[in-house]
Amino acid sequence: MALPMIRGCYRFPLTVSFSRLVLNERIILNRSVKTRLSPSSAAGVAVAVRPYSSDREGKKQTQKVVMVGIPNPFIWFRTRIYYFLIRAYFDKEFSIEEFTEGAKQAFSHVSRLLSQCQFDALDGLVEKDLIGKLEEKCNLLPLSHKKALSADPEEIMYTVPGDVGIYYDDNGRKFVSILMRFWYLTSARLPDETMEGTRIFQVAIGGEEEAETKRLLTAIYEFQREFTKGVPPEWIITRIEHSKLLD
């Protein structure tokens, strides 16, 4: 089974409706909110916008949550060179924008399977040796942590490509690997003492009495594809890390 990364596949809307956002127990209304990521985390400048609109007292209001990544100039320049090499020598139709969108959907799909412990369904999506390691780790997790593994497409707040690798093995087989970083919200109830360093958001839908607390978690997935002649054009996940959950 091929990863949901082929052009035209898994094109879901990625919008979230928020009527109120509380960051660090402080209510923020009617203005954009920017969360800065560390310089080492982002490979390039990227902005994820989540619009919200509602009719209140006959007036339409719009609110945005914006997350801005600070670029690492060296990584940004290096990855652009690799994108050019991929298009020039491996896939002339390669687009990092389309790849990122497909990777986002693959991340959501695979993380949901992990959360539900459906390890057999990961065959063809995740490297076989990695599936066994993930099964061992997931079986030791409490239910709350398993739930937190799942990233709904609408809760993925920020996605950015990381390192890119092009290499050959001893048999002359050609490979390309792309590391992707994801930031997503979860409503899973996680103990504070084990989630130190994560950001806590409180989302109120309709009113304060309906407030729901969410955490901003991170995950790293590495995608690899073999470009040797005659090999099916499929990407497979070779690395999975969920910070504070599957380190």
Rank of each mutant, 00 (worst) to 15 (best):
P39V: 09
G102C: 10
T100D: 00
L141A: 03
E57Y: 15
P73Y: 14
T194F: 08
G197Y: 04
R112V: 09
E154P: 01
S144M: 04
E98Y: 13
F18S: 07
V110Q: 01
Q61I: 15
S111M: 03
E101Y: 12
L125V: 11
V16G: 07
D55P: 01
R11E: 15
L179C: 11
P161G: 07
F77M: 13
A2M: 09
P161A: 10
V203R: 06
V22N: 10
Q116A: 11
A2Y: 08
R189G: 02
T35F: 07
V160K: 09
Q202P: 03
A204S: 13
P191K: 09
S40D: 11
E210N: 15
N139E: 14
Y82V: 12
K214M: 14
E155D: 12
L23Q: 12
I27M: 14
V176K: 06
G102K: 06
I27G: 07
R31E: 07
E25F: 06
K133P: 02
A211D: 13
E136P: 04
T159R: 05
G44I: 07
A219Y: 03
Q63P: 03
E136C: 10
G172L: 05
R78P: 01
V16Q: 13
A219N: 04
D169W: 10
G44W: 02
N30P: 00
I131F: 02
Q202E: 14
D55R: 00
L217W: 08
E210T: 15
E210I: 15
I200S: 08
Y184V: 02
K137T: 03
W183F: 06
E241W: 12
P233Y: 08
K244N: 09
P73G: 13
G172C: 05
P233C: 03
D120P: 01
G207S: 13
F107Q: 01
F182A: 01
Y89L: 07
R199A: 02
Q105D: 09
L190P: 04
F107N: 00
F94A: 04
S53Y: 04
A106Q: 10
L217G: 04
A219P: 02
L190N: 08
A2H: 10
D123Y: 11
S187N: 08
L190M: 11
S54R: 09
D192W: 01
P142L: 10
R225S: 04
S111E: 03
Y52H: 02
D170C: 12
T79M: 08
A151L: 03
G102S: 08
Q202M: 14
E97D: 15
I131N: 01
G58R: 09
A103E: 12
I205P: 01
L3Q: 05
S177T: 15
R78L: 04
Y184P: 02
P51T: 03
I131M: 03
L114K: 11
L113P: 02
